[in-house]
């Protein structure tokens, strides 16, 4: 009986300490930024769901991301079309599957992707309020809402919702709303933090 009580007390103490350690990190954007500073690298898989009013079921894409602080990122789709976006030292390259081989894309939307990748890298670094085009505010449930300041952007992106995971510094999902009934949701899973990622991952497609 005594042993049982001791175990209960020990368990409660550990839980309280754990709770105290994590309380507060997601209360402010500054707190989140601080918690993200602990993260040097992220590897994760993602599922991308495209929801639209006209679709009977969402269009699902799958891929993986690799991030090395401060600004190296590999964003890769496996399905339905293989595509790899590489960002290293501020330079971006995009490879896409054409005729069953990966070819470098030099298309016009590369610039748009550069902006998008830089934004994602900022979020992964906990810097949610650094883009002057968006206003960031924190809502209950570890939800960060980014709202465009200018009409020219809000015509294309209504808002972005970032849900933080239980682990400080990592995101659970990103939802980009183009309108109320058209949105893209990215859900992250199999997350591995702070494990060394070879630099070549961000520079070559292999």
């Amino acid at each position: 009986m005594n042993n049982q009580n001791t175990s209960k007390v020990l368990f409660m103490t550990i839980m309280t300490i754990a709770a105290l350690l994590f309380i507060g990190w997601a209360d402010t954007l500054e707190g989140i930024k601080g918690a993200s500073a602990e993260i040097t690298s992220i590897s994760a898989e993602f599922t991308q769901e495209k929801h639209m009013k006209i679709l009977v079921k969402p269009l699902v894409s799958k891929g993986a991301l690799y991030y090395q602080s401060p600004m190296s990122l590999r964003w890769e789709y496996y399905h339905p079309v293989q595509s790899i976006l590489l960002m290293s030292n501020g330079k971006i390259k995009r490879y896409i599957q054409r005729n069953k081989t990966l070819v470098q894309d030099t298309g016009a939307n590369l610039q748009i992707m550069q902006i998008a990748l830089q934004e994602i890298a900022r979020w992964l670094d906990g810097r949610f309020d650094e883009n002057p085009a968006f206003t960031a505010h924190l809502e209950p449930g570890r939800k960060i809402i980014l709202s465009p300041k200018e009409k020219s952007i809000s015509r294309l992106i209504q808002r972005i919702e970032l849900i933080l995971s239980d682990h400080p510094g990592m995101m659970k999902s990103i939802t980009i709303f183009e309108s109320n009934d058209s949105f893209t949701k990215l859900i992250f899973n199999n997350v591995v933090l702070n494990q060394k990622i070879p630099e070549s991952r961000f520079r070559t497609i292999r």
Binding site: Q48, I54, L55, S61, S83, A116, T184
Partner: peptide, 23 residues
């Protein structure tokens, strides 16, 4: 990526063109 919804009896079409990233 292209999404096409067709109704043969009604001869109607809905279509969407998007980037691989879903835009």
């Amino acid at each position: 990526l292209g999404v096409t919804i067709i109704s043969v009896p009604h001869q109607t079409i809905k279509c969407v063109i998007m980037t691989i990233e879903g835009f």
